[in-house]
């Protein structure tokens, strides 16, 4: 039995009572930690170019991403990343570190269900939507690019 009006009134009442997240401290922490992650990435990039002067810049970028992904997965595995993420929020979720964490954490979590049905199946349970939307949007852009190229 559902009473739409009563439910609406109750939802409005609850909404008014819900404790809200304080936006400014969260934003500030996300900003400076996110900035630090970017600084770290830039530092790694500069270091690679310094150590291998003949390397193409694009190749160095790829290695930088690999390094950041490794660091985030490593921190996830030793149980530190979730504490940083809880503090920094979007600061560590938005850079590639968040993506790495979202794949590594279910992989660890579900390893007791077996390599195939646990780790492999669940690995993309959080990152999956990001990959799907990435692929779909690149297909759309590709089609637009192709049509524009015809003229």
């Amino acid at each position: 039995m559902k009473n739409e009006k009563l439910n609406e009134a109750y939802n409005a009442y609850v909404e008014a009572r819900i404790p809200k997240t304080k936006p400014w401290p969260s934003l500030f922490n996300a900003f400076w930690v996110g900035g630090l992650v970017c600084l770290l990435g830039q530092g790694i990039n500069e270091l690679i170019l310094y150590l291998f002067p003949s390397m193409a810049e694009q190749t160095a970028w790829a290695w930088t991403l690999v390094a950041l992904i490794f660091i985030a997965s490593f921190l996830t595995a030793v149980g530190v990343f979730d504490k940083i993420g809880k503090f920094a929020g979007a600061g560590t979720i938005v850079p590639i570190t968040g993506f790495s964490n979202s794949i590594a954490s279910p992989a660890i979590e579900f390893k007791h269900e077996g390599i195939i049905y646990g780790t492999c199946v669940k690995m993309f349970s959080i990152a999956g939507p990001v990959i799907v939307s990435g692929v779909v949007s690149s297909v759309l852009v590709g089609v637009i690019y192709y049509i524009v190229g015809l003229f």
Partner: peptide, 16 residues
């Protein structure tokens, strides 16, 4: 793991 996210996922909890 049954109702929410993996333990090691770096996300924030809402106040409620």
């Amino acid at each position: 793991r049954q109702f929410r996210f993996p333990l090691e996922l770096g996300c924030q909890r809402v106040p409620t």
